[in-house]
Nucleic acid binder design. Structure first.
Length: 105
DNA sequence: CCCCTGACTGTCG
DNA sequence: CCGACAGCCAGGG
């Protein structure tokens, strides 16, 4: 499977298929639920696009529960670890103090 | 078309 | 358990 064969938005400059799929995955997240960037990408049908998910959240995260998304290592958002950790704890998720990580699964 | 950056990931010491 | 490195994909200048 080549890159060119993956689903694309086409000529439109609006939201890509990738963005719509990711948005749906993020939208269905429940309180107290945690997911990794890689899982979001794979669940959306775009395995290997973990970084793209991060970029998407950086741009449109304000419209989604971005705090329920962490790295595969349980790492929180660099620069926002404190706020991130607090939001997760507010949903009953334990966060280690050290570098601020969460137990995924 | 080339180069650089990044809210990532897996491996190594 | 934690920090450092290299690899990978897309987007933007």
């Amino acid at each position: 499977m080549t890159r060119a064969s993956r689903p694309r938005s086409g000529t439109a400059g609006g939201p890509t298929s990738f963005e719509r799929s990711v948005a749906e995955v993020l939208d269905r997240l429940r309180s107290g639920e945690v997911i990794t960037y890689g899982e979001v990408a794979a669940e959306a049908g775009y395995p290997g696009r973990a970084r793209a998910v991060g970029a998407f959240l950086a741009a449109h995260g304000h419209l989604f529960p971005w705090w329920r998304v962490v790295t595969a290592n349980g790492r929180l958002v660099p620069g926002n670890e404190q706020d991130h950790a607090r939001r997760l704890r507010a949903e009953g998720i334990e966060v280690t103090d050290r570098t601020g990580r969460v137990r995924v699964r």
